[in-house]
Design a protein around this nucleic acid. Sequence first.
RNA 1: UGGGGCGUGGGCAAGCGGUAAGCCACCGGUCUUUGACACCGGUUAUCGCAGGUUCGAAUCCUGCCGCCCCAGCCA
Length: 560
Amino acid sequence: MAENESSNFIYKFIDEDLEAKRWGERVATRFPPEPNGYLHIGHAKSICLNFGIARDYKGSCNLRFDDTNPAKEEQEYVDSIMEDVLWLGFKWDNLYFASDYFDKLHDFAIKLIREGKAYVCDLTADEIREYRGTLTTPGKESPYRGRSVEENLDLFYRMGKGEFPDGSRVLRAKGDMASGNLNMRDPVMYRVLTATHHRTGDKWCIYPMYDWAHGQSDAIEGITHSICTLEFEDHRPLYDWFLAQLGEEFPTPPRQIEFARLNLSHTVLSKRKLIELVKDSYVDGWDDPRMPTISGFRRRGFTPESIRDFAGRIGVAKKDSLVDYALLEHCLREDLNKRAERRMAVLHPLKVVITNYPEGETEHFECVNNPEDESAGTRMVPFSRELYIERDDFMEDPPKKFFRLGPGREVRLRSAYFITCEKVVKDADGELVELHCTYDPESRGGASPDGRKVKATLHWVSAAHAVDATVRLYDRLFTEENPGVEKDGISYLDKMNPDSLTELEGCKVEPSLSKLSPEERVQFERLGYFVADRREHSAEKPTFNRVTTLRDAWAKISGK
RNA sequence: UGGGGCGUGGGCAAGCGGUAAGCCACCGGUCUUUGACACCGGUUAUCGCAGGUUCGAAUCCUGCCGCCCCAGCCA
Protein backbone atom coordinates (compact mmCIF):
# COMPACT_ATOMS: atom_id res chain seq x y z
CA MET A 1 0.00 0.00 0.00
CA ALA A 2 1.02 3.54 -0.62
CA GLU A 3 2.19 5.54 2.35
CA ASN A 4 -0.37 8.27 2.15
CA GLU A 5 -4.06 8.82 1.81
CA SER A 6 -4.15 9.18 -1.97
CA SER A 7 -7.27 7.50 -3.15
CA ASN A 8 -7.73 7.16 -6.85
CA PHE A 9 -8.31 4.26 -9.16
CA ILE A 10 -4.67 4.09 -10.24
CA TYR A 11 -3.48 3.62 -6.68
CA LYS A 12 -6.13 0.97 -6.37
CA PHE A 13 -4.83 -0.87 -9.44
CA ILE A 14 -1.29 -0.70 -8.15
CA ASP A 15 -2.36 -2.05 -4.78
CA GLU A 16 -4.03 -4.96 -6.54
CA ASP A 17 -0.98 -5.64 -8.68
CA LEU A 18 1.25 -5.49 -5.65
CA GLU A 19 -0.96 -7.95 -3.86
CA ALA A 20 -0.93 -10.25 -6.87
CA LYS A 21 2.85 -9.84 -6.99
CA ARG A 22 2.59 -9.08 -10.66
CA TRP A 23 6.03 -7.50 -10.59
CA GLY A 24 7.02 -8.53 -7.11
CA GLU A 25 7.36 -5.57 -4.81
CA ARG A 26 8.43 -3.20 -7.51
CA VAL A 27 6.63 -0.08 -8.75
CA ALA A 28 8.22 1.84 -11.60
CA THR A 29 6.70 4.73 -13.53
CA ARG A 30 7.90 7.22 -16.06
CA PHE A 31 6.98 10.65 -17.34
CA PRO A 32 7.34 10.50 -21.14
CA PRO A 33 7.06 13.92 -22.82
CA GLU A 34 7.69 14.50 -26.47
CA PRO A 35 10.19 17.39 -26.75
CA ASN A 36 8.09 19.38 -29.17
CA GLY A 37 6.81 22.10 -26.88
CA TYR A 38 6.97 23.43 -23.35
CA LEU A 39 5.35 21.65 -20.44
CA HIS A 40 2.03 23.03 -19.21
CA ILE A 41 -0.12 22.66 -16.11
CA GLY A 42 -1.69 19.52 -17.57
CA HIS A 43 1.74 17.93 -17.71
CA ALA A 44 2.23 19.02 -14.12
CA LYS A 45 -0.73 16.84 -13.19
CA SER A 46 0.91 13.88 -14.91
CA ILE A 47 4.30 14.63 -13.39
CA CYS A 48 2.86 14.85 -9.89
CA LEU A 49 0.98 11.61 -10.49
CA ASN A 50 3.92 9.63 -11.82
CA PHE A 51 6.56 10.96 -9.47
CA GLY A 52 4.05 10.88 -6.64
CA ILE A 53 3.44 7.18 -7.17
CA ALA A 54 7.16 6.51 -7.13
CA ARG A 55 7.41 8.42 -3.86
CA ASP A 56 4.40 6.83 -2.22
CA TYR A 57 5.37 3.27 -3.13
CA LYS A 58 9.08 3.79 -2.69
CA GLY A 59 9.49 2.99 -6.34
CA SER A 60 11.17 4.84 -9.16
CA CYS A 61 10.20 7.29 -11.86
CA ASN A 62 12.15 7.99 -15.01
CA LEU A 63 12.07 11.01 -17.23
CA ARG A 64 11.99 9.66 -20.75
CA PHE A 65 11.79 11.80 -23.84
CA ASP A 66 9.60 10.31 -26.51
CA ASP A 67 11.77 11.60 -29.31
CA THR A 68 10.71 9.47 -32.25
CA ASN A 69 9.79 12.28 -34.61
CA PRO A 70 12.79 14.48 -35.48
CA ALA A 71 10.63 16.61 -37.74
CA LYS A 72 9.04 18.24 -34.71
CA GLU A 73 11.47 17.88 -31.86
CA GLU A 74 14.19 20.20 -30.66
CA GLN A 75 16.89 20.39 -28.03
CA GLU A 76 15.41 23.63 -26.67
CA TYR A 77 12.36 21.69 -25.59
CA VAL A 78 14.44 18.96 -23.98
CA ASP A 79 16.23 21.59 -21.92
CA SER A 80 13.07 23.41 -20.89
CA ILE A 81 11.33 20.20 -19.89
CA MET A 82 14.15 19.13 -17.61
CA GLU A 83 14.27 22.57 -16.05
CA ASP A 84 10.52 22.58 -15.45
CA VAL A 85 10.39 19.12 -13.88
CA LEU A 86 13.21 20.09 -11.54
CA TRP A 87 11.58 23.39 -10.66
CA LEU A 88 8.37 21.56 -9.81
CA GLY A 89 10.45 19.72 -7.25
CA PHE A 90 10.96 16.28 -8.75
CA LYS A 91 14.10 14.31 -9.48
CA TRP A 92 14.04 11.48 -11.96
CA ASP A 93 15.71 8.21 -11.14
CA ASN A 94 16.95 7.90 -14.71
CA LEU A 95 17.02 10.17 -17.69
CA TYR A 96 16.32 8.30 -20.90
CA PHE A 97 15.39 8.93 -24.49
CA ALA A 98 13.33 6.68 -26.72
CA SER A 99 16.11 7.29 -29.20
CA ASP A 100 18.38 5.33 -26.84
CA TYR A 101 16.39 2.31 -27.92
CA PHE A 102 16.43 2.77 -31.69
CA ASP A 103 18.86 -0.12 -32.18
CA LYS A 104 16.86 -2.48 -30.01
CA LEU A 105 13.62 -1.44 -31.62
CA HIS A 106 15.19 -2.14 -34.98
CA ASP A 107 16.19 -5.64 -33.85
CA PHE A 108 12.71 -6.28 -32.52
CA ALA A 109 11.22 -5.22 -35.83
CA ILE A 110 13.45 -7.68 -37.68
CA LYS A 111 12.28 -10.40 -35.35
CA LEU A 112 8.67 -9.63 -36.21
CA ILE A 113 9.48 -9.63 -39.91
CA ARG A 114 11.22 -12.99 -39.58
CA GLU A 115 8.18 -14.38 -37.86
CA GLY A 116 5.97 -13.12 -40.64
CA LYS A 117 4.26 -10.61 -38.37
CA ALA A 118 5.37 -7.47 -40.16
CA TYR A 119 5.81 -6.43 -43.75
CA VAL A 120 7.02 -3.59 -45.90
CA CYS A 121 4.15 -1.78 -47.56
CA ASP A 122 4.53 0.37 -50.69
CA LEU A 123 1.13 1.99 -50.54
CA THR A 124 1.12 5.77 -50.48
CA ALA A 125 -0.18 7.56 -47.41
CA ASP A 126 -3.44 8.25 -49.21
CA GLU A 127 -3.78 4.64 -50.24
CA ILE A 128 -3.11 3.41 -46.76
CA ARG A 129 -5.90 5.64 -45.54
CA GLU A 130 -8.25 4.26 -48.18
CA TYR A 131 -7.34 0.69 -47.39
CA ARG A 132 -7.82 1.30 -43.71
CA GLY A 133 -11.56 1.62 -44.20
CA THR A 134 -13.72 3.82 -42.01
CA LEU A 135 -15.07 3.83 -38.49
CA THR A 136 -18.02 1.71 -39.56
CA THR A 137 -16.64 -0.32 -42.43
CA PRO A 138 -13.73 -2.75 -42.36
CA GLY A 139 -10.52 -2.06 -44.22
CA LYS A 140 -8.95 -4.27 -46.84
CA GLU A 141 -5.56 -5.84 -46.84
CA SER A 142 -2.62 -4.20 -48.54
CA PRO A 143 -1.50 -5.92 -51.75
CA TYR A 144 2.01 -5.99 -50.26
CA ARG A 145 0.93 -7.93 -47.22
CA GLY A 146 1.93 -11.23 -48.73
CA ARG A 147 5.58 -10.47 -49.43
CA SER A 148 8.08 -13.11 -48.43
CA VAL A 149 10.13 -12.78 -45.30
CA GLU A 150 13.27 -12.46 -47.43
CA GLU A 151 11.83 -9.66 -49.50
CA ASN A 152 10.56 -7.85 -46.41
CA LEU A 153 13.93 -8.17 -44.75
CA ASP A 154 15.74 -6.89 -47.82
CA LEU A 155 13.37 -3.98 -48.27
CA PHE A 156 13.47 -3.03 -44.58
CA TYR A 157 17.27 -3.01 -44.55
CA ARG A 158 17.31 -0.88 -47.66
CA MET A 159 14.77 1.48 -46.13
CA GLY A 160 17.22 1.90 -43.30
CA LYS A 161 20.08 2.60 -45.67
CA GLY A 162 18.23 5.46 -47.25
CA GLU A 163 17.59 3.84 -50.59
CA PHE A 164 13.99 4.99 -50.69
CA PRO A 165 12.56 8.49 -50.51
CA ASP A 166 10.50 9.80 -47.61
CA GLY A 167 7.02 8.44 -47.59
CA SER A 168 7.64 5.78 -50.19
CA ARG A 169 7.46 2.74 -47.93
CA VAL A 170 6.60 1.84 -44.37
CA LEU A 171 6.97 -1.20 -42.19
CA ARG A 172 3.62 -2.43 -40.93
CA ALA A 173 2.53 -5.00 -38.42
CA LYS A 174 0.05 -7.63 -39.56
CA GLY A 175 -2.95 -6.82 -37.48
CA ASP A 176 -6.57 -7.24 -38.41
CA MET A 177 -7.92 -5.02 -41.17
CA ALA A 178 -11.45 -5.74 -40.02
CA SER A 179 -10.90 -4.79 -36.40
CA GLY A 180 -13.31 -2.29 -34.93
CA ASN A 181 -10.24 -0.70 -33.38
CA LEU A 182 -8.53 1.22 -36.15
CA ASN A 183 -5.22 0.99 -34.37
CA MET A 184 -5.15 -2.73 -35.03
CA ARG A 185 -5.60 -2.38 -38.81
CA ASP A 186 -1.99 -3.10 -39.77
CA PRO A 187 -0.41 -0.26 -37.81
CA VAL A 188 2.64 1.46 -39.22
CA MET A 189 5.79 0.69 -37.24
CA TYR A 190 8.40 2.62 -39.22
CA ARG A 191 8.36 5.41 -41.73
CA VAL A 192 11.17 6.73 -43.92
CA LEU A 193 12.05 10.19 -42.73
CA THR A 194 15.07 12.17 -43.79
CA ALA A 195 15.64 14.50 -40.89
CA THR A 196 18.46 15.24 -38.51
CA HIS A 197 17.59 13.99 -35.07
CA HIS A 198 18.57 16.16 -32.12
CA ARG A 199 20.42 13.26 -30.55
CA THR A 200 21.15 10.61 -33.16
CA GLY A 201 21.98 13.10 -35.87
CA ASP A 202 21.86 11.53 -39.32
CA LYS A 203 22.35 7.96 -38.21
CA TRP A 204 18.79 6.99 -39.03
CA CYS A 205 16.48 7.69 -41.89
CA ILE A 206 13.71 5.47 -40.60
CA TYR A 207 11.99 6.29 -37.34
CA PRO A 208 9.65 4.22 -35.20
CA MET A 209 6.07 5.28 -34.66
CA TYR A 210 4.71 5.98 -31.18
CA ASP A 211 2.88 2.68 -30.89
CA TRP A 212 5.94 0.69 -31.81
CA ALA A 213 8.29 2.65 -29.59
CA HIS A 214 6.35 3.38 -26.46
CA GLY A 215 5.49 0.01 -25.00
CA GLN A 216 8.87 -1.43 -25.82
CA SER A 217 10.61 1.55 -24.27
CA ASP A 218 8.55 1.08 -21.12
CA ALA A 219 9.39 -2.61 -21.04
CA ILE A 220 13.10 -2.05 -21.61
CA GLU A 221 13.14 0.27 -18.60
CA GLY A 222 11.24 -2.19 -16.49
CA ILE A 223 8.28 0.15 -16.05
CA THR A 224 5.48 -1.57 -14.16
CA HIS A 225 2.72 0.99 -14.64
CA SER A 226 2.63 3.02 -17.80
CA ILE A 227 0.29 5.89 -17.08
CA CYS A 228 -1.08 7.98 -19.91
CA THR A 229 -4.13 9.97 -20.89
CA LEU A 230 -7.52 8.74 -22.06
CA GLU A 231 -6.97 9.15 -25.78
CA PHE A 232 -4.51 6.25 -25.63
CA GLU A 233 -7.08 3.85 -24.31
CA ASP A 234 -7.69 2.62 -27.86
CA HIS A 235 -3.99 1.97 -28.21
CA ARG A 236 -3.78 -0.35 -25.24
CA PRO A 237 -4.65 -3.50 -27.24
CA LEU A 238 -1.83 -2.67 -29.61
CA TYR A 239 0.51 -1.81 -26.74
CA ASP A 240 -0.21 -5.22 -25.24
CA TRP A 241 -0.06 -7.00 -28.58
CA PHE A 242 3.40 -5.75 -29.50
CA LEU A 243 4.75 -6.72 -26.10
CA ALA A 244 3.13 -10.11 -26.38
CA GLN A 245 4.96 -10.71 -29.65
CA LEU A 246 8.19 -10.04 -27.83
CA GLY A 247 7.09 -12.38 -25.09
CA GLU A 248 10.34 -14.09 -24.16
CA GLU A 249 12.05 -10.71 -24.12
CA PHE A 250 9.55 -9.20 -21.70
CA PRO A 251 7.98 -11.82 -19.48
CA THR A 252 6.31 -9.23 -17.24
CA PRO A 253 5.16 -6.44 -19.52
CA PRO A 254 4.05 -3.08 -18.09
CA ARG A 255 0.41 -2.28 -17.52
CA GLN A 256 -0.96 0.77 -19.29
CA ILE A 257 -3.46 2.80 -17.29
CA GLU A 258 -5.26 5.83 -18.64
CA PHE A 259 -6.63 8.86 -16.81
CA ALA A 260 -8.42 12.03 -17.89
CA ARG A 261 -6.18 14.90 -18.85
CA LEU A 262 -6.59 18.22 -17.08
CA ASN A 263 -8.67 21.02 -18.51
CA LEU A 264 -8.35 24.35 -16.73
CA SER A 265 -10.94 27.07 -17.04
CA HIS A 266 -10.16 30.29 -18.92
CA THR A 267 -7.16 28.91 -20.73
CA VAL A 268 -6.17 26.41 -23.38
CA LEU A 269 -3.87 23.47 -22.90
CA SER A 270 -3.62 21.98 -26.33
CA LYS A 271 -0.07 21.87 -27.56
CA ARG A 272 -1.08 23.07 -30.98
CA LYS A 273 -2.81 26.14 -29.58
CA LEU A 274 -0.02 26.97 -27.17
CA ILE A 275 2.52 26.77 -29.98
CA GLU A 276 0.32 29.03 -32.05
CA LEU A 277 0.07 31.60 -29.26
CA VAL A 278 3.84 31.71 -29.07
CA LYS A 279 4.79 31.47 -32.75
CA ASP A 280 2.25 34.06 -33.83
CA SER A 281 3.18 36.36 -30.96
CA TYR A 282 -0.16 36.53 -29.23
CA VAL A 283 1.91 36.29 -26.08
CA ASP A 284 5.49 37.11 -25.29
CA GLY A 285 7.06 33.66 -25.48
CA TRP A 286 6.57 30.34 -23.72
CA ASP A 287 7.17 31.86 -20.30
CA ASP A 288 4.82 34.79 -20.73
CA PRO A 289 3.23 35.11 -17.28
CA ARG A 290 -0.19 34.64 -18.82
CA MET A 291 0.69 31.27 -20.30
CA PRO A 292 -0.49 28.07 -18.60
CA THR A 293 2.97 26.62 -19.14
CA ILE A 294 5.07 25.65 -16.15
CA SER A 295 7.59 28.30 -17.12
CA GLY A 296 4.76 30.79 -17.50
CA PHE A 297 3.44 30.05 -14.03
CA ARG A 298 6.96 30.25 -12.72
CA ARG A 299 7.56 33.66 -14.19
CA ARG A 300 4.14 34.77 -13.07
CA GLY A 301 5.27 34.02 -9.54
CA PHE A 302 3.45 30.80 -8.71
CA THR A 303 5.22 28.48 -6.30
CA PRO A 304 5.95 24.86 -7.18
CA GLU A 305 4.36 23.93 -3.86
CA SER A 306 1.06 25.49 -4.85
CA ILE A 307 1.03 23.67 -8.16
CA ARG A 308 1.75 20.36 -6.48
CA ASP A 309 -0.98 21.05 -3.96
CA PHE A 310 -3.35 21.83 -6.81
CA ALA A 311 -2.44 18.60 -8.59
CA GLY A 312 -3.23 16.71 -5.42
CA ARG A 313 -6.59 18.38 -4.93
CA ILE A 314 -8.02 17.97 -8.41
CA GLY A 315 -7.87 14.22 -8.13
CA VAL A 316 -7.34 11.60 -10.78
CA ALA A 317 -10.26 10.01 -12.58
CA LYS A 318 -11.47 9.10 -16.03
CA LYS A 319 -14.16 11.73 -16.36
CA ASP A 320 -13.63 14.65 -18.73
CA SER A 321 -13.66 17.70 -16.55
CA LEU A 322 -12.98 21.40 -16.45
CA VAL A 323 -11.27 22.50 -13.27
CA ASP A 324 -11.99 25.98 -11.98
CA TYR A 325 -8.98 28.29 -12.16
CA ALA A 326 -10.12 29.59 -8.76
CA LEU A 327 -8.89 26.38 -7.17
CA LEU A 328 -5.38 26.99 -8.46
CA GLU A 329 -5.55 30.54 -7.15
CA HIS A 330 -6.74 29.27 -3.81
CA CYS A 331 -3.76 26.92 -3.53
CA LEU A 332 -1.46 29.77 -4.42
CA ARG A 333 -2.92 32.23 -1.91
CA GLU A 334 -2.85 29.65 0.84
CA ASP A 335 0.84 29.04 0.23
CA LEU A 336 1.86 32.67 -0.24
CA ASN A 337 -0.17 33.91 2.73
CA LYS A 338 2.09 31.87 4.96
CA ARG A 339 5.36 32.64 3.22
CA ALA A 340 5.32 36.00 1.50
CA GLU A 341 6.52 39.00 3.46
CA ARG A 342 4.32 42.07 3.41
CA ARG A 343 5.39 45.31 1.82
CA MET A 344 3.66 48.55 0.91
CA ALA A 345 3.34 49.67 -2.68
CA VAL A 346 1.06 52.23 -4.27
CA LEU A 347 0.06 51.34 -7.79
CA HIS A 348 -2.06 54.39 -8.64
CA PRO A 349 -0.54 57.17 -6.55
CA LEU A 350 -2.54 60.00 -5.04
CA LYS A 351 -0.47 62.54 -3.14
CA VAL A 352 -1.34 63.32 0.45
CA VAL A 353 0.16 66.26 2.35
CA ILE A 354 0.01 66.07 6.12
CA THR A 355 -0.33 69.78 6.76
CA ASN A 356 0.36 69.66 10.49
CA TYR A 357 3.41 67.41 10.16
CA PRO A 358 6.79 69.19 10.39
CA GLU A 359 8.38 69.93 7.05
CA GLY A 360 11.64 68.13 6.39
CA GLU A 361 11.11 65.63 9.16
CA THR A 362 11.38 61.88 8.67
CA GLU A 363 10.62 59.14 11.11
CA HIS A 364 10.66 55.38 10.72
CA PHE A 365 7.95 52.97 11.68
CA GLU A 366 8.47 49.37 12.52
CA CYS A 367 6.31 47.19 10.32
CA VAL A 368 5.56 43.52 10.75
CA ASN A 369 6.85 41.49 7.82
CA ASN A 370 4.34 38.71 8.09
CA PRO A 371 1.54 38.50 10.62
CA GLU A 372 1.27 34.80 9.84
CA ASP A 373 4.90 34.17 10.68
CA GLU A 374 6.52 35.89 13.59
CA SER A 375 9.96 34.65 12.59
CA ALA A 376 9.78 36.86 9.51
CA GLY A 377 10.51 39.78 11.84
CA THR A 378 9.98 43.48 11.21
CA ARG A 379 11.43 46.24 9.08
CA MET A 380 11.63 50.01 9.34
CA VAL A 381 9.63 52.08 6.86
CA PRO A 382 10.22 55.83 6.40
CA PHE A 383 7.41 58.33 6.88
CA SER A 384 7.33 62.02 6.08
CA ARG A 385 5.04 64.97 5.39
CA GLU A 386 4.18 64.00 1.84
CA LEU A 387 2.92 60.57 1.05
CA TYR A 388 1.23 58.56 -1.65
CA ILE A 389 -1.88 56.55 -1.06
CA GLU A 390 -3.89 54.47 -3.51
CA ARG A 391 -6.19 56.49 -5.72
CA ASP A 392 -8.96 53.96 -5.09
CA ASP A 393 -8.72 54.56 -1.36
CA PHE A 394 -10.28 58.00 -1.68
CA MET A 395 -13.71 59.02 -2.83
CA GLU A 396 -14.95 62.55 -2.85
CA ASP A 397 -18.54 61.47 -2.47
CA PRO A 398 -18.36 58.03 -0.91
CA PRO A 399 -21.33 55.68 -0.68
CA LYS A 400 -22.28 54.32 2.72
CA LYS A 401 -20.40 51.07 2.41
CA PHE A 402 -17.14 52.72 1.39
CA PHE A 403 -15.19 53.20 4.56
CA ARG A 404 -11.88 54.43 3.31
CA LEU A 405 -10.87 58.10 2.99
CA GLY A 406 -13.24 60.89 2.05
CA PRO A 407 -13.65 64.57 2.92
CA GLY A 408 -13.74 64.93 6.69
CA ARG A 409 -13.12 61.23 7.27
CA GLU A 410 -10.46 59.70 9.44
CA VAL A 411 -8.53 56.54 8.58
CA ARG A 412 -5.41 54.81 9.77
CA LEU A 413 -2.19 54.75 7.82
CA ARG A 414 -0.81 51.30 8.40
CA SER A 415 1.68 51.22 11.28
CA ALA A 416 1.81 55.04 11.27
CA TYR A 417 -0.87 57.53 12.24
CA PHE A 418 -4.54 58.33 11.98
CA ILE A 419 -5.15 61.03 9.42
CA THR A 420 -8.21 63.09 8.57
CA CYS A 421 -8.92 64.50 5.14
CA GLU A 422 -9.33 68.25 5.42
CA LYS A 423 -9.12 69.48 1.87
CA VAL A 424 -9.38 68.18 -1.67
CA VAL A 425 -7.10 70.00 -4.09
CA LYS A 426 -8.02 70.10 -7.78
CA ASP A 427 -6.50 71.62 -10.88
CA ALA A 428 -8.13 74.01 -13.36
CA ASP A 429 -9.86 71.09 -15.10
CA GLY A 430 -11.36 69.87 -11.90
CA GLU A 431 -9.01 66.89 -11.75
CA LEU A 432 -7.96 65.66 -8.37
CA VAL A 433 -4.39 66.71 -7.62
CA GLU A 434 -3.79 66.00 -3.95
CA LEU A 435 -5.29 65.73 -0.54
CA HIS A 436 -4.51 67.89 2.47
CA CYS A 437 -4.83 65.95 5.67
CA THR A 438 -3.99 66.39 9.32
CA TYR A 439 -2.60 63.68 11.53
CA ASP A 440 -3.11 62.88 15.17
CA PRO A 441 0.34 62.71 16.83
CA GLU A 442 -1.23 60.68 19.62
CA SER A 443 -1.98 57.81 17.24
CA ARG A 444 1.68 57.08 16.57
CA GLY A 445 2.22 53.51 15.44
CA GLY A 446 -1.41 53.30 14.42
CA ALA A 447 -2.74 52.62 17.88
CA SER A 448 -6.00 54.27 18.86
CA PRO A 449 -5.05 56.70 21.60
CA ASP A 450 -8.46 57.27 23.12
CA GLY A 451 -10.06 54.07 22.01
CA ARG A 452 -11.72 55.61 19.00
CA LYS A 453 -12.03 53.35 15.96
CA VAL A 454 -11.43 53.92 12.31
CA LYS A 455 -12.97 51.66 9.75
CA ALA A 456 -10.10 51.54 7.33
CA THR A 457 -6.37 51.04 7.34
CA LEU A 458 -4.60 52.24 4.23
CA HIS A 459 -1.21 51.40 2.81
CA TRP A 460 1.06 54.30 1.94
CA VAL A 461 4.55 55.21 0.78
CA SER A 462 6.56 58.27 1.76
CA ALA A 463 6.91 60.45 -1.33
CA ALA A 464 10.48 61.49 -0.55
CA HIS A 465 11.61 57.92 -0.09
CA ALA A 466 9.48 56.16 -2.68
CA VAL A 467 11.11 54.10 -5.37
CA ASP A 468 9.58 54.13 -8.83
CA ALA A 469 8.63 50.73 -10.16
CA THR A 470 7.04 49.04 -13.11
CA VAL A 471 4.20 46.77 -12.18
CA ARG A 472 2.44 44.38 -14.52
CA LEU A 473 -1.07 43.35 -13.71
CA TYR A 474 -2.18 40.10 -15.26
CA ASP A 475 -5.63 38.78 -15.79
CA ARG A 476 -6.98 35.66 -17.43
CA LEU A 477 -5.84 35.16 -21.01
CA PHE A 478 -9.31 34.22 -22.24
CA THR A 479 -12.68 35.69 -21.46
CA GLU A 480 -14.58 32.43 -21.81
CA GLU A 481 -14.53 29.59 -19.39
CA ASN A 482 -13.68 27.00 -22.00
CA PRO A 483 -12.17 28.85 -24.96
CA GLY A 484 -10.79 25.74 -26.57
CA VAL A 485 -14.22 24.41 -27.43
CA GLU A 486 -15.11 25.91 -30.77
CA LYS A 487 -18.73 26.58 -31.42
CA ASP A 488 -20.27 28.63 -34.20
CA GLY A 489 -16.86 28.57 -35.83
CA ILE A 490 -15.44 31.09 -33.39
CA SER A 491 -11.75 30.48 -32.80
CA TYR A 492 -10.22 30.50 -29.35
CA LEU A 493 -8.11 33.37 -30.64
CA ASP A 494 -11.23 35.50 -30.81
CA LYS A 495 -11.84 34.90 -27.13
CA MET A 496 -8.59 36.37 -25.89
CA ASN A 497 -8.95 38.89 -23.11
CA PRO A 498 -7.79 42.29 -24.41
CA ASP A 499 -7.04 43.31 -20.82
CA SER A 500 -4.96 40.30 -19.86
CA LEU A 501 -1.95 42.57 -19.35
CA THR A 502 -1.83 46.07 -17.89
CA GLU A 503 1.58 47.58 -17.40
CA LEU A 504 1.88 50.40 -14.90
CA GLU A 505 4.84 52.74 -14.78
CA GLY A 506 5.71 55.12 -11.99
CA CYS A 507 4.28 53.05 -9.21
CA LYS A 508 5.52 54.15 -5.82
CA VAL A 509 6.95 51.41 -3.67
CA GLU A 510 8.70 51.33 -0.33
CA PRO A 511 12.51 51.43 -0.53
CA SER A 512 13.12 47.85 0.58
CA LEU A 513 11.46 46.58 -2.56
CA SER A 514 14.31 47.54 -4.84
CA LYS A 515 16.46 45.04 -2.95
CA LEU A 516 14.37 42.05 -3.90
CA SER A 517 16.03 39.26 -5.85
CA PRO A 518 14.46 38.12 -9.09
CA GLU A 519 11.72 35.56 -8.39
CA GLU A 520 11.33 36.74 -4.80
CA ARG A 521 7.67 37.03 -3.86
CA VAL A 522 5.99 39.51 -1.52
CA GLN A 523 2.52 40.63 -0.67
CA PHE A 524 1.78 44.25 -1.47
CA GLU A 525 -0.56 44.89 1.40
CA ARG A 526 -4.21 45.04 0.47
CA LEU A 527 -3.40 44.49 -3.21
CA GLY A 528 -2.09 41.05 -3.88
CA TYR A 529 0.98 38.93 -4.25
CA PHE A 530 3.77 40.14 -6.50
CA VAL A 531 7.02 38.71 -7.73
CA ALA A 532 10.18 40.43 -8.86
CA ASP A 533 10.34 39.53 -12.52
CA ARG A 534 12.68 36.66 -13.18
CA ARG A 535 14.21 38.35 -16.19
CA GLU A 536 13.70 42.08 -15.96
CA HIS A 537 13.77 43.07 -12.32
CA SER A 538 16.78 45.01 -11.06
CA ALA A 539 17.50 47.54 -8.32
CA GLU A 540 17.74 50.22 -11.02
CA LYS A 541 14.46 49.28 -12.60
CA PRO A 542 12.30 47.40 -10.14
CA THR A 543 9.80 45.33 -12.10
CA PHE A 544 7.06 43.29 -10.54
CA ASN A 545 4.45 40.87 -11.80
CA ARG A 546 1.19 40.48 -9.99
CA VAL A 547 0.86 36.80 -9.20
CA THR A 548 -2.70 37.12 -8.02
CA THR A 549 -4.87 39.57 -6.17
CA LEU A 550 -5.99 39.22 -2.59
CA ARG A 551 -9.60 38.27 -2.21
CA ASP A 552 -11.46 41.54 -2.34
CA ALA A 553 -14.78 41.92 -0.54
CA TRP A 554 -15.02 45.56 -1.52
CA ALA A 555 -14.76 44.69 -5.19
CA LYS A 556 -17.83 42.53 -4.80
CA ILE A 557 -19.78 45.19 -2.94
CA SER A 558 -18.85 47.89 -5.42
CA GLY A 559 -19.48 45.63 -8.34
CA LYS A 560 -16.05 46.06 -9.86
C1' U B 1 -25.37 -3.78 -33.26
C1' G B 2 -17.80 -0.05 -35.86
C1' G B 3 -14.53 0.12 -31.48
C1' G B 4 -13.16 2.32 -26.78
C1' G B 5 -14.46 5.33 -22.51
C1' C B 6 -17.40 8.40 -19.18
C1' G B 7 -22.07 10.22 -16.53
C1' U B 8 -22.52 11.65 -7.96
C1' G B 9 -24.71 19.30 -5.77
C1' G B 10 -22.33 25.48 -9.63
C1' G B 11 -16.79 23.20 -10.44
C1' C B 12 -13.66 18.92 -8.90
C1' A B 13 -14.23 14.28 -6.25
C1' A B 14 -14.81 10.11 -2.31
C1' G B 15 -17.95 6.13 -1.91
C1' C B 16 -17.67 -0.25 -4.48
C1' G B 17 -24.92 -3.57 -1.27
C1' G B 18 -26.60 -0.82 4.56
C1' U B 19 -29.15 4.17 3.71
C1' A B 20 -24.53 10.56 0.03
C1' A B 21 -17.01 12.45 2.71
C1' G B 22 -13.96 16.40 1.55
C1' C B 23 -12.11 20.57 -1.34
C1' C B 24 -13.18 24.94 -4.45
C1' A B 25 -17.07 28.44 -5.49
C1' C B 26 -21.25 30.99 -3.45
C1' C B 27 -24.17 33.30 0.85
C1' G B 28 -24.38 34.98 5.98
C1' G B 29 -21.73 36.14 10.62
C1' U B 30 -17.41 36.72 14.28
C1' C B 31 -12.58 38.77 14.51
C1' U B 32 -9.25 42.29 12.48
C1' U B 33 -3.61 48.11 12.48
C1' U B 34 -4.40 44.04 5.21
C1' G B 35 -12.67 45.10 3.41
C1' A B 36 -6.66 39.94 3.62
C1' C B 37 -5.95 35.79 6.84
C1' A B 38 -8.40 32.94 10.60
C1' C B 39 -12.89 31.13 12.72
C1' C B 40 -18.28 29.86 12.90
C1' G B 41 -22.72 28.85 10.27
C1' G B 42 -25.55 28.08 5.68
C1' U B 43 -27.36 26.85 0.56
C1' U B 44 -27.72 23.58 -3.69
C1' A B 45 -27.85 15.68 -4.53
C1' U B 46 -34.83 12.14 -7.14
C1' C B 47 -26.24 9.71 -7.28
C1' G B 48 -28.05 10.66 -16.33
C1' C B 49 -33.16 8.16 -17.15
C1' A B 50 -36.43 3.80 -16.82
C1' G B 51 -37.22 -0.90 -15.19
C1' G B 52 -35.45 -5.22 -12.30
C1' U B 53 -32.89 -8.16 -8.18
C1' U B 54 -32.72 -7.39 -2.74
C1' C B 55 -35.24 -6.53 3.84
C1' G B 56 -32.10 -2.68 1.78
C1' A B 57 -28.93 -0.15 -4.52
C1' A B 58 -25.05 5.58 -6.15
C1' U B 59 -23.13 0.68 -5.52
C1' C B 60 -25.58 -5.72 -8.79
C1' C B 61 -28.65 -6.80 -13.65
C1' U B 62 -31.30 -5.05 -18.20
C1' G B 63 -32.69 -1.35 -21.55
C1' C B 64 -32.42 3.59 -22.97
C1' C B 65 -30.35 8.74 -23.14
C1' G B 66 -26.26 12.12 -23.18
C1' C B 67 -21.08 13.43 -23.62
C1' C B 68 -15.82 12.36 -25.03
C1' C B 69 -11.95 9.69 -28.03
C1' C B 70 -10.39 6.87 -32.67
C1' A B 71 -10.12 6.78 -39.91
C1' G B 72 -1.42 10.86 -38.93
C1' C B 73 3.75 7.56 -42.66
C1' C B 74 1.88 12.87 -34.90
C1' A B 75 2.46 11.70 -29.84
